[in-house]
């Protein structure tokens, strides 16, 4: 148990970590269950955001700057990932109608 005093109230760091865990698991469900490639990319963004919340929580608990800097770096990586992923998706959709991720299985051995 680790108490954070925020604006006169006392919150526990594990609440924030629990929220991050729930959001990460929801993102995992989206990646595993959904079939639309676009929604899978959106779920990956959700997982990255959950990881950011955990990083910032530990940064606040330790009163250390490295967690926040790492969260900023991971936001940069997430932006780059979204740009390249969406460009690949548009390129695929231009040549064929791929509404199901299982349609894209030409690389199968």
């Amino acid at each position: 148990m680790s108490n954070l005093v925020i604006g006169g109230s006392t919150l526990d760091a594990s609440w924030f970590l629990g929220l991050a865990a729930i959001l990460f698991v929801l993102g995992t469900v989206g990646v595993l269950v959904r079939r639309n490639p676009l929604v899978i990319l959106i779920s990956i963004e959700l997982m990255l955001n959950a990881a950011n919340l955990a990083l910032v929580t530990f940064s606040r608990q330790l009163q250390n700057y490295e967690g926040q800097l790492f969260a900023l770096m991971s936001m940069t990586v997430a932006a780059a990932e979204a740009v390249v992923g969406l460009a690949i998706l548009v390129d695929i959709f231009r040549t064929r109608d791929a509404e199901d991720i299982d349609d894209l299985s030409e690389l199968k051995g």
Binding site: I6, N49, M75
Partner: peptide, 19 residues
């Protein structure tokens, strides 16, 4: 809003603007 609660003001602004 969670980032603001955790007093990460700059990450809050970047989250709104970039994300």
């Amino acid at each position: 809003v969670m980032f603001l609660l955790l007093s990460a003001q700059f990450v809050f602004a970047v989250q709104i603007i970039v994300y």
